[in-house]
């Protein structure tokens, strides 16, 4: 079946059996710190901690982790480049000017801050994404009283994503073999047929699943019992201490 590298890491890392609460506390704590702190030093500390926890602690394959951190690169670079310039009347003290476009100390600093913040925040988010499967996160949301229907729909979605990715790969290969992507117009026609074939497959799969669940208690609320993963007190204590220390340090620095 279709696989996604981040998802594979999430199901197979050394922190897989840790409770979702622990991992969420650590990753989201680092994420909040990364986003709220203005200090580049704090950002760097978050980056180091997140990378260390992911690669050394959870043994996430470094290629996968790197791919996550670099995935938004094109957006971040384009966005930061845009923030680094000012357009209009030439401002005083421009470091660089080309026609109406200029770069100043201020714009450059903002761009640098945004870059640092995005990098640190992405590394923290990546820690959560590569150590915790979506299934576990949905279970966590259930505990947080997110409405049952919403979590049920999301759970089915997660399962179906992989089924449909398989369909996409197969349909696409079958179309390619029959020269469906040999020319531009053919490619567009093929993609349209691909989309509709996937939607149709989604629909029939859902109907068949409904019939399939009839004998298991029906497709009413999809209540299940997740694995028991007790919260580790030392892990939480270390995480809280670390987060508080980092916060204090960044407040003092500011």
């Amino acid at each position: 079946m279709a696989r996604l590298a981040i998802d594979d890491a999430a199901w197979g890392n050394r922190w897989r059996q840790r409770s979702t609460a622990e991992k969420a506390l650590l990753a989201l704590g680092l994420l909040v710190l990364a986003v709220t702190s203005r200090e580049v030093v704090t950002g760097a500390a978050v980056l180091v901690l997140a990378v260390g926890c992911a690669l050394v602690g959870a043994r996430v394959p470094w290629r996968t982790y790197l791919r996550v951190v670099l995935a938004p690169l094109s957006f971040v670079v384009l966005g930061a480049a845009s923030v680094a310039v000012t357009v209009g009347a030439r401002p005083d003290g421009a470091l660089l000017a080309l026609g109406p476009v200029a770069v100043t100390d201020g714009t450059l600093t903002t761009a640098g801050q945004v870059l640092a913040r995005a990098l640190a925040a992405t590394s923290a988010m990546a820690l959560l994404a590569t150590t915790t499967p979506v299934s576990d996160l949905l279970t966590g949301m259930r505990r947080l009283r997110v409405p049952e229907v919403v979590v049920d729909v999301a759970e089915v979605m997660y399962r179906f994503v992989f089924l449909l990715l398989d369909t996409v790969a197969t349909v696409r290969e079958a179309q390619t073999a029959r020269l469906g992507y040999a020319t531009g117009p053919a490619a567009r026609r093929s993609l349209g047929m691909l989309g509709s074939a996937v939607l149709r497959q989604a629909w029939t799969r859902a109907q068949r699943l409904d019939a399939g669940l009839a004998g298991r208690g029906g497709s009413g609320p999809l209540r299940t019992l997740p694995a028991l993963r007790p919260v580790s007190v030392p892990f939480v204590a270390v995480t809280c201490t670390g987060l508080v220390a980092l916060t204090a340090a960044s407040v003092v620095l500011a």
């Binding site: 499967p133 799969r205 019939a211 399939g212 019992l225 694995a227």
Partner: peptide, 17 residues
């Protein structure tokens, strides 16, 4: 695939009980 609705093996098996 007509009967498994959860991506988590353990959770799916627990549905009936």
């Amino acid at each position: 695939d007509d009967q498994l609705f959860s991506a988590d093996v353990r959770q799916d098996v627990s549905f009936g009980p």
